[in-house]
Simulated assay, not measured.
Amino acid sequence: MLPPLFLLTTLTLLTITTSTPHHPKPRAPQTSTATPSAPSLNPPFGSKRGLAYNEHSPSGSLSLFTPHTSITWGYNWNSSPRSLPSRFAYVPELHSLRAEHTSDWDDNVHKALASSSTTSSSPSGADGEMYLMSFNEPDLADQANISVTDAVQGFAQYMMPFATSTPPHKDGLKLGSPAVSNVRPAPGDDGKPKGLPYLKAFLAKCETLPQPCRIDFVPIHWYGCRKGCPLATDVDKFKKHVGEAVEVAVYQGRQLPLWVTEFATFGDEEGFLKEVLPWLDGHADVERYSYFWVGEGSLVQDGGLSGVGEVYVS
């Protein structure tokens, strides 16, 4: 059992060291006594924009986004939607191979499927598909922390059963590869692959299985410069990283779409979003994205949308 992780604030984000361009995320939430409306699992593709949230998102904050049609889906590093309003599609994620995440994975996915099929208020996806994401930053010791070999085996065990007929989806659900960080190896590291090299190794090993993994999309994460880099620098580095990820995200001869499920700058957030949101919306290889995160001081502030949040929903 890991020690409890803490709620992120703007201050803690700014104090993260440059050698680890990453932040800790709280563990999957425990069972709640609340009974929220069940979100759909198949959003419309009219907008790529989603919400990254969890149990530490301020109470009621998700409802701030419901009037905005630019937001269509959400995820919470977990397999149970908790308080996500039913207007939004929910994408379950198998956070890690730890028992706290695997023990209820199958049940939660089937519950989400059943709830989705009876939720009339949620818009149906233009393609009618449903999606599952796998391990959260397995390349980092303070997150899923899974070797490439174990990740491939875990994917085969927990994700691949949903690749075949899963009523009402006769062709199975759409499965996402592990979501890797943009950390680069540093002197003194353990020598294990990180970031896109981890993703490349995972995809290559998946292809060697007797039954190769089914992979339909590739989530990635990106965090910008911690040293007060100019806005233009972060924008350029973000675009370059997405471009590099596109080059890696080729599997069994197919170009897989990207989901940028965590990204943030530590500089001018509003200026950054104004630059990159139109670019992401127009990028043919980016299928969905979610800015980090529905948290106080990020997308929300004092019971309302922050300035950053207002830009994000616009």
Rank of each mutant, 00 (worst) to 15 (best):
V91D: 07
F202Y: 09
E287P: 04
S147H: 06
Y53M: 13
P21A: 08
L13I: 10
L5P: 05
S134E: 00
G304E: 13
V152S: 13
Q301N: 07
K170L: 03
P21E: 03
Y289E: 00
V260P: 04
E296F: 06
S147N: 12
V246D: 09
L62G: 08
S57H: 10
Q252P: 06
K111F: 14
G253I: 02
S103K: 14
T164N: 09
T72Q: 06
Q211W: 07
L97G: 00
G228K: 11
G297M: 07
G74M: 01
V183I: 12
N78W: 15
A151H: 02
T31S: 10
H101Y: 14
M159L: 14
D216S: 14
G309F: 00
W293L: 03
A232P: 02
V311Q: 11
F217M: 01
T102S: 13
V313C: 09
D234N: 15
P24Q: 14
P3Y: 03
A201Q: 03
D104K: 13
L173K: 12
A179R: 11
Y289I: 00
F272I: 05
I71L: 04
V152E: 11
L2W: 13
P197C: 04
D106Y: 12
G295H: 05
K111T: 14
V313Q: 11
F272G: 12
F217P: 01
S40K: 09
A245T: 06
D268A: 07
D139I: 02
T261H: 10
I71Y: 02
G50L: 01
V91R: 12
Q143M: 13
P185W: 04
S122F: 13
S177L: 08
F65G: 01
L203D: 01
D142F: 14
P39G: 01
L11G: 07
L199N: 02
L203V: 04
Q153I: 05
P43W: 06
P29R: 11
I220V: 15
F202N: 06
K194Y: 09
I16K: 14
L64I: 12
L113T: 08
P161M: 01
H221G: 01
M160T: 10
F6L: 06
K227P: 00
F45A: 14
V235G: 03
V246S: 12
T18P: 05
H95E: 15
H101W: 14
S57P: 03
D268V: 01
K200W: 00
I146N: 05
